[in-house]
Each structure stands twice: as structure tokens, then as C-alpha cells.
Simulated scan of single mutants.
Amino acid sequence: MAIRIRHADDTVLEAHEINVTPFIDVMLVLLVIFMVTAPLTTVNVPVELPSSTQQPTPRPDEPVFLTVKADHTLSLGENDVAATQLTEALNAATKGNRDERIFLRADKTVDYGTLMDVMDHLRSAGYLKVAFVTLQGGNIPARTTGATP
């Protein structure tokens, strides 16, 4: 706070001036920080993501697991099944209920084309509710994501 004394009438006046230089310095530093970090926190693919207020679907008591092994063979539950007999095996496992969700697991070495062939078999058999099973962290089963082939 500065005091200015006028010699003419001897009254004391206070100067109400604030030193804004430190404030500007701090704001410039913050601006630089945000300019550097903002491009790093954004994704370059423009997508409008939908939102959902629904709770995750609970896992059924007896889920139907279809597994694609590393050697591209299929297993339904614990039993091996040939790709040509997949429809019959699925009908037996689901008791003909095509609305039942199929939990699809695949070895991480399975190529995309093989996985799409299995999805095509499921679709042609009429099973459109497919959930992909993944692992989260170590060996802890994670949630499944429903998808339509």
C-alpha cells in the first residue's frame, strides 16, 4: 500500500493500486501447462458415445461358453465340437432358445478371420446375442460385453 502526501492541503490519500504482475505470471504459467497437456488428453477420433442408465445384465445361472482354442478348434462348455456340428450342439445346449446369450471366449493368438468365421456360424444359427469374455488384470474374469455379430 502506498501513501501519497499532497503538499497543498496536507490531506493523506491512499493509492488503491494492486501489483498484478505476479498474477499475470501465474496465469501465463497455467496457460502454458494447459496448452501442453490438452493435446495429450484428447483422442483424435471424433465419436459421439452413447450413454446408458441401465444396470449391467446379471450373469445367467448356467451360461453357455463357446471357446475358440489356439489351434482354431471349438469347445462348447467342456466338450469339443466340430464347426460343422456347432448349430446342433448350440441348440442342445440352449434347448433351442435362440435368445440366450452365448459367451464367446477366444485364445489371444486366434486371428481375426477365425473369430469372424465363428461369429458368422453363430449368426447363421440364429444366435444374435453374443458376449465377449475377457480377462482383467491377472486371471480374474472381467465383465462381458454384449455384441451382435
Rank of each mutant, 00 (worst) to 15 (best):
T11F: 13
T11R: 15
T11H: 14
V12P: 00
V12I: 15
E14Y: 13
E14W: 11
E14P: 00
H16A: 14
H16L: 15
E17I: 12
E17P: 01
E17W: 10
I18Q: 12
I18F: 06
N19V: 09
N19R: 13
V20H: 06
V20P: 00
V20I: 10
T21Q: 10
T21W: 11
T21K: 12
P22F: 00
P22G: 01
P22M: 05
F23K: 04
F23P: 00
F23V: 11
F23I: 11
I24Y: 06
I24C: 03
V26P: 00
V26E: 01
V26S: 05
V26G: 01
M27K: 03
M27P: 00
M27F: 08
M27A: 14
L28F: 10
L28I: 10
L28E: 02
L28G: 08
V29A: 06
V29L: 07
V29S: 01
L31S: 11
L31M: 14
V32K: 02
V32H: 02
I33Q: 04
I33K: 03
I33A: 12
F34I: 11
T37Y: 06
T37E: 01
T37K: 03
T37N: 01
A38H: 06
A38I: 03
A38Q: 08
A38P: 00
A38T: 12
P39Y: 07
P39E: 05
P39C: 08
P39M: 09
P39Q: 10
L40A: 09
T41K: 10
T41G: 13
T41R: 13
T41L: 13
T41Y: 04
T41M: 11
T42R: 12
V43M: 12
V43Q: 14
V43L: 13
V43R: 15
V43P: 00
N44F: 05
N44H: 10
V45T: 15
P46K: 13
P46V: 07
P46R: 12
P46M: 05
P46F: 08
P46L: 09
P46Y: 06
P46C: 03
V47R: 15
V47M: 14
V47S: 11
E48N: 14
L49M: 09
L49A: 11
L49E: 07
L49P: 00
L49W: 04
P50D: 04
P50Y: 01
P50F: 02
P50A: 10
S51M: 03
S51K: 12
S52C: 07
S52Y: 07
S52Q: 11
T53N: 14
T53S: 14
Q55Y: 04
Q55F: 04
Q55C: 03
Q55H: 09
P56R: 12
T57H: 11
P58H: 07
R59S: 03
R59Q: 07
R59E: 03
P60F: 05
D61A: 15
E62N: 15
E62C: 05
P63W: 06
P63C: 08
P63M: 09
P63I: 08
P63R: 09
L66Q: 02
L66R: 03
T67P: 01
T67F: 10
K69R: 15
A70P: 02
A70C: 04
D71S: 09
D71P: 03
D71G: 04
H72R: 15
H72C: 08
T73S: 15
T73A: 09
L74T: 02
L74N: 05
L76S: 02
L76E: 02
G77Y: 05
E78H: 12
E78Y: 07
E78K: 15
E78S: 14
